[in-house]
Design a protein around this nucleic acid. Structure first.
Lengths: 166, 166
DNA sequence: CACATCTTTCAATTTTTTTTGAAAACAAAA
DNA sequence: TTTTGTTTTCAAAAAAAATTGAAAGATGTG
């Protein structure tokens, strides 16, 4: 397999996988493209490489910048914006954790906290509350853990994970 | 908020959240319904409660059983199947980890392993390989960690997580 | 076997999500 | 100010995913 082929395969796979991750294909492909580009790219180059429309490229580049996975570069004398991917994997993972936690875990916590207001009266309620309480306990624990993970530095992360694997 | 209301809210929220998780709404709602049902339910009861079609209920019940989040109960003398949710939260989380890892992480690992075959010749390739190598290292570490998590028992899990939070 | 009860399948439909592309907005330079 | 190169927006179109429901498939029963 040569480099060009491998890059294409990487971009394609990253995109296909994204749907499983609940992230749209274009966003993942733009990310993948920038990850494997040694040089920053303009929106035009991105749309050309991936054969996607301007609006699509623009929206997803912005989303990636929001996620903290891609950065803008401004060159003096030039008006267009260049984009390049964050290459430090620990930062990438941290940003993904932050964003997915915000989307996936936090809304759940909010709902569960509301649920906590239900009083335990009838047998039904007892069962319901016990289920909700268990989920809440777990979710809060997970939330705290992810928060510390995010605050930790790369070495601490590696160390802790290696400890877990033993 | 009374119990009935809370249950409905729980089912609705769990379903809405599911789309963010890359899991379809019906599957999540069926799961939520069974979680808060003190008694096992039949497919008919599920379709009635959630107002969904037979095929939908059947497919998602099967999927949930596949995921190990729901179990079947057969009652002698009766022909229909009853379904009830796994209530032990550690088991639920473990099953979700297993299934999401299979869907999300494992395919990525396979692709990355293929990529590893690319030789480092031109400057481009060097950059490409370095990116892929980093992602691979991280992913393998994550994979190992999740594997041990899954094998661990609930106490070990809690202990380790608490250690991380410190 | 024929019937009754329940489960599974799947083509067609509906809903949701993503993508397009033309127009508007913006901002630097002439 | 006008021109020019660029980004942003968003309604419409396309694509993808989920859902329906009727029909077929099982499976136990008289």
């Amino acid at each position: 397999m040569d480099v060009k082929e491998a890059k294409e395969k990487f971009i394609e796979s990253w995109g296909k996988m994204a749907s499983e991750w609940g992230i749209n294909r274009s966003m993942a492909q733009v990310h993948a493209l920038l990850l494997v580009s040694p040089e920053p790219l303009t929106a035009d180059q991105v749309m050309q490489e991936l054969d996607i429309a301007r609006g699509n490229a623009n929206m997803n580049l912005r989303a990636l910048v929001d996620w903290g996975l891609v950065h803008k570069q401004l060159r003096n004398g030039e008006r267009k914006e260049y984009f390049f991917a964050e290459k430090d994997m620990w930062t990438v993972v941290r940003q993904i954790i932050i964003n997915r936690k915000k989307r996936e875990l936090d809304p759940m916590l909010r709902v569960l906290d509301e649920m906590a207001g239900v009083e335990e009266k009838c047998p039904d309620s007892e069962h319901f509350c016990s289920v909700v309480r268990d989920i809440r306990t777990f979710s809060h624990k997970a939330s705290l853990t992810l928060d510390s993970l995010v605050k930790a530095d790369a070495n601490w992360f590696t160390r802790t994970f290696l400890n877990m694997v033993r």
